[in-house]
Write a protein that binds this DNA or RNA. Structure first.
Lengths: 228, 228
DNA sequence: ACCTTGTGTATTGTATACAAAATGTCGAGG
DNA sequence: CCTCGACATTTTGTATACAATACACAAGGT
């Protein structure tokens, strides 16, 4: 969309993802308009978009609030992402070509560099990760699947998950991408699907462990994990 | 939403589904506003909603058109519906209770009455069908899943599919719902999932057969099928 | 003949004013 | 002290005017 509408969307979205607007906080149109420096009209459009992406919840009386996610909600979304991204990986594997494979490798190499350091560059990891998954989705060549997934990824949850990753987990994610690349190189859709499912599952448990304390059976070894 | 916004939404949606606005037709805001008897503001909101539901496509320069679906697109959507509705059926089976089961039975009984006649009542069938699937989705108790599916069901395609159903196919659909009810009654999620997948697959092939001529291997027996 | 470029027209984007609706407040009655 | 209801305030919904942008078509250059 055009200037003002985008400004409102990016602005509000940023405030939500960064936590500047806490979960459950009321979103008055007038106030947001002022904070974003636009009128209410583009703010209203932005709110509808964000509602579609489930970042904003609306009451039956049409008032908007920052969506608050229970752990069950989050698990639900991760499961759906697992299903849909697995399907994307399978289709991508079946449609892979030399050029796309090369771009995927380049993307994962960038991730590798970001996580190889003593202090991994989380933002660079996130950017590489986003690009890697976007490339897969592009290769999957299913506009409807892409539309569904776009309302699921990039939640604040995803952002925060990575920040709870330790260096070991970041590197594991990088290695799982390598596995995916192997499956893609062989055009093995079933393999790619299986790896992607595990990849998403691991991401959920990393998040889940970091929030409520540990998982059901207690967690296996973990190395150093700084708190911040 | 409120009066005018709903009127615009319902109006435009109806025009698209009924075919009054053909696929690919341009959707000027001014013209739609006049036809719906409201101003451009609620029309714009309706168009954004319909875009989210993939009934309307927007060019990069923000002009709106009635979405035109290739057969590949339609297959894609049916596959996604298969995946997601299967999951809904499994979750619903795992969470079924006496009351919900009873409402599902009542709903399918209504479908049974609609298709038992010599000239089946398609509209009643559609309404019952919609309710049946909605009840399952409600029982699945996954708001995110419901949100995803809401952008997939009720396409013009779905509507037209039923109108291509012959009496035999309508009754088959009714029987498949009965199978689902059996799986629900036993709380057997895997069973319910399998039946639902087949149910959606059959719906796709019914549509597909009716449009391009028949399927790959040629189609098995078909009884009387009136053209209109 | 084709591509560029400029201008007029149609369409969409934004701001603002006003209408409708909801929420909160305060007081009367129980 | 609580409940209910009228009123004041806040918030959202709609219409409209105007600004910005895209499109179509024609004129000119290559």
């Amino acid at each position: 969309m055009s200037r003002a509408s985008d400004r409102a969307y990016d602005g509000i979205r940023g405030m939500i993802i960064s936590g500047e607007l806490a979960a459950g906080a009321p979103l008055g149109e007038e106030a947001l308009a002022e904070r974003c420096g636009v009128s209410r009209t583009p703010v209203r459009e932005a709110l509808r978009r964000l509602e579609g992406e489930m970042l904003v919840r609306r009451t039956e009386s049409q008032r908007s609030f920052v969506a608050d996610w229970s752990l069950d909600d989050i698990e639900d979304v991760f499961e759906l992402r697992g299903i849909l991204e697995s399907r994307a990986a399978r289709r991508a594997a079946e449609r892979m070509d030399r050029n796309a494979l090369q771009r995927l490798r380049a993307s994962n190499d960038a991730i590798g560099r970001a996580v190889a350091m003593i202090n991994p560059d989380i933002d660079e990891f996130l950017e590489g990760n986003r690009e890697f998954h976007a490339l897969i989705l592009e290769r999957a060549d299913s506009p409807k699947l892409a539309a569904l997934l776009s309302s699921l990824v990039e939640q604040p949850v995803v952002w925060r998950t990575a920040h709870h990753y330790g260096r070991e987990e970041l590197r594991r994610s990088h290695r799982e991408h390598d596995e995916l690349l192997a499956a893609f190189a062989r055009g093995d859709g079933t393999w790619a699907e299986a790896i992607m499912l595990g990849h998403i599952k691991r991401a959920f448990h990393a998040y889940s462990d970091a929030h409520r304390g540990l998982s059901a059976i207690d967690r296996p070894d973990r190395k150093a994990k700084a708190k911040a």
